[in-house]
Nucleic acid binder design. Structure first.
Length: 285
DNA sequence: CAACAGGTTTGTA
DNA sequence: TACAAACCTGTT
């Protein structure tokens, strides 16, 4: 991946493995806003502006090191895609979502966001998360004539009760959020991102399943987007359709068994395969 | 107006 | 271990 860093910009020259629309719309992230051809991305308390100019993609931010990591720019996606192309069913999905990259997202924000995402639609998920940010009224200052607010810290989340989460549209997930937030201080200490690198995925999965509102699908999203584990395959309604199209002959019924089957197929590249398959199915249905 | 939306929990065999 | 039903709420 050919890119350079200068002042407050990352300039990406080779766009074969980077397409901001693919990255933001493949279902992994909710903290962004599209304004015309410009994308604003605001993980945690950071902000960047992403746009295209002269056949390059520009990531503009006061925190370019943060976003270099966030967009996973040091990983060789061409190499990974070449390996995945050994699976014929991935040829078209990889062509369609060629610029997908799996973001390295903050654990706390990922856990809260994906509990809210359960059995929910993107519009309401986004709306609820925006209201959660706005509640604390800590603006991310910028010169773009746009208003963005920081994602709350754990200590701030701990001050919220069930009725608040209901009031921002979390619905029945409100009580799950309150219960899980109570557990998170200990959880994030025991299973921090740093420590997780030495912990097997299945062990982390078992721990995540102890959190309220976290089932297999949400847990695998947290593993993939928060912990960067790639030997996972979150199965939702879209992936079930993919499975029906491609592998129905195996006749698996539950999402859990479908996830097991697909992880066994794609091994340590499962998370990448999931994103290509999910994005191409959802965008082409 | 019923079904659905990027599932999880709870209860029952 | 497996399956069904209930669940907030805004949209279609």
């Amino acid at each position: 991946m050919f890119y350079q860093k200068e002042n407050n910009k990352i300039i990406i020259h080779n766009l074969a493995d980077f397409n901001i629309q693919h990255i933001l719309e493949c279902g992994q992230v909710f903290s962004y806003k599209k304004v015309g051809n410009i994308f604003y991305v605001f993980p945690q308390d950071k902000l960047c502006k992403v746009y295209y100019s002269n056949n390059c993609c520009i990531i503009e931010s006061e925190n370019i090191d943060y976003f270099e990591n966030y967009f996973d720019l040091k990983t060789d996606y061409s190499k990974m895609k070449k390996e995945l192309l050994n699976f014929p069913e991935l040829k078209l999905p990889i062509e369609f979502g060629s610029g997908i990259r799996i973001l390295k997202q903050d654990l706390l924000e990922t856990i809260i966001s994906f509990i809210i995402s359960a059995n929910n639609n993107i519009k309401r998920i986004t709306s609820t998360l925006l209201k959660l940010r706005e509640h604390f009224n800590k603006e991310i200052k910028n010169s773009y004539n746009e208003k963005f607010f920081e994602f709350p810290k754990l200590s701030e989340l701990e001050s919220l009760n069930e009725s608040f989460f209901v009031s921002i549209g979390a619905g029945y997930r409100a009580k799950y959020l309150v219960e899980t937030i109570k557990l998170l201080k200990q959880f994030l200490t025991d299973f921090s991102f740093e420590k997780s690198e030495k912990i097997e995925t299945k062990v982390l999965l078992a721990e995540l399943l102890k959190l309220k509102g976290v089932g297999r699908k949400v847990a695998e999203c947290i593993l993939l987007f928060g912990y960067g584990k790639k030997d996972v395959f979150p199965v939702d309604t879209w992936i079930k359709k993919v499975y029906s199209d491609l592998f129905k002959f195996t006749n698996l019924k539950s999402a859990d068994s479908i996830s097991d089957f697909l992880i066994n197929r794609y091994k340590n590249l499962s998370g990448y395969a999931q994103q290509y398959l999910f994005y191409s199915k959802r965008e082409n249905s």
